[in-house]
Design a binder for these strands. Sequence first.
DNA 1: CGCCGAGTTGAACTGAATCAAGAAACGTGG
DNA 2: CCACGTTTCTTGATTCAGTTCAACTCGGCG
Lengths: 199, 199
Amino acid sequence: MQKFIDYLSGLAKLSPQVKSAIESKLIWQEFPKKHVLIKELSLCNRLYFIEEGLARVFYLKDGKEITDWFCSEGMLVGPVVRNFPQKEGPHAVELIESSKVSSIHFDDLQELFDTHHEVERMGRILAIQAVLFIQNRLDSLQFESAQQRYENLLKTYPSIIEKAPLGYIASYLGITQVTLSRIRGSLNRPARNSQDKIC
Amino acid sequence: MQKFIDYLSGLAKLSPQVKSAIESKLIWQEFPKKHVLIKELSLCNRLYFIEEGLARVFYLKDGKEITDWFCSEGMLVGPVVRNFPQKEGPHAVELIESSKVSSIHFDDLQELFDTHHEVERMGRILAIQAVLFIQNRLDSLQFESAQQRYENLLKTYPSIIEKAPLGYIASYLGITQVTLSRIRGSLNRPARNSQDKIC
DNA sequence: CGCCGAGTTGAACTGAATCAAGAAACGTGG
DNA sequence: CCACGTTTCTTGATTCAGTTCAACTCGGCG
């Protein structure tokens, strides 16, 4: 719970009384692996913060599950990211690992926005961060090859690659399982030339 | 100038005194075609609103100009979109047509954020809109073919296609001029089958 | 033991990039 | 106003990354 507050006050300065106002609205929960944290983002009325664990945000596209986000420790999930007012499609959030989460009701958040200028500012900065984050993904999708994108993910979020199954990662990267498998293969094989004697 | 205020108050309710506080900070300018409105987004200290005309935001990538945004009437350009604090690369903004713009200094904007909760909220909502906008582009880049993307642009912003040269549009869509030219060709040709006698 | 989902591998196919050469349009200066 | 070079656009041939379809492997589990 403290982590959540710390995260938020890292975005914008929050006075002690605002912090405790936020804190009084938070709840803390622990859920097992595969728990469905949010069934449909558009109907979801809580904003979650992953204290520990790993979740994935996904949706159905032509009958296939598309992962469009992994939420690891210290990240937010909820209607803020994809949905404003309450529009947009049926994105769901499922836990990949058993996880500890803090959350706040959207109505409470809205009230905090109304009553505290500081919170509103925090919300603005949060949204701007989201812009920058997505901008990054856009650039990587536009200019990098599948392999480069995989390597970047490997660099920035190695934990995701260890924990999430291949198919999820592939759809997050915007490629097929098959391609991702080949990339992995080609990433391992070249090493042999120098050291191993396999032949 | 009024358009700018109207646009902003369309995002969040602004009281008359806040409106006039904003208005007092605005300046209005007119520039000819090809005028460089912003040389480097990262150094830019004004937020512009296109009242009339058309601009493009672009940057250099491996020696090539990449257009990453067209700003037509009723849109904002400036450090808000791509740059927060003052980081990020050398994005520039050039006018494609002669244009009329309103603008506000970033320091003034910051002051308005500080002094008026309403303005802060407006800023938050603006950022969220940017998130949704980019999210859309991301989805279209991930799932749509070059042709679909072109057709969508044609539907949503036909004016851009009329006014901007091919190369700009292509790099905005994330494809080459060559491909875009072929798409155009294939979009015209099939019509012949039904009506014309060319053979 | 055989089934099942997850991952790997092969072969054929495809959308778009690249390279390269023309054609059209667009100033700019004589 | 025409001749010129320059940029913008079109078209063809080739290449390549990544998809699709399909078969096959492997570890786990009823």
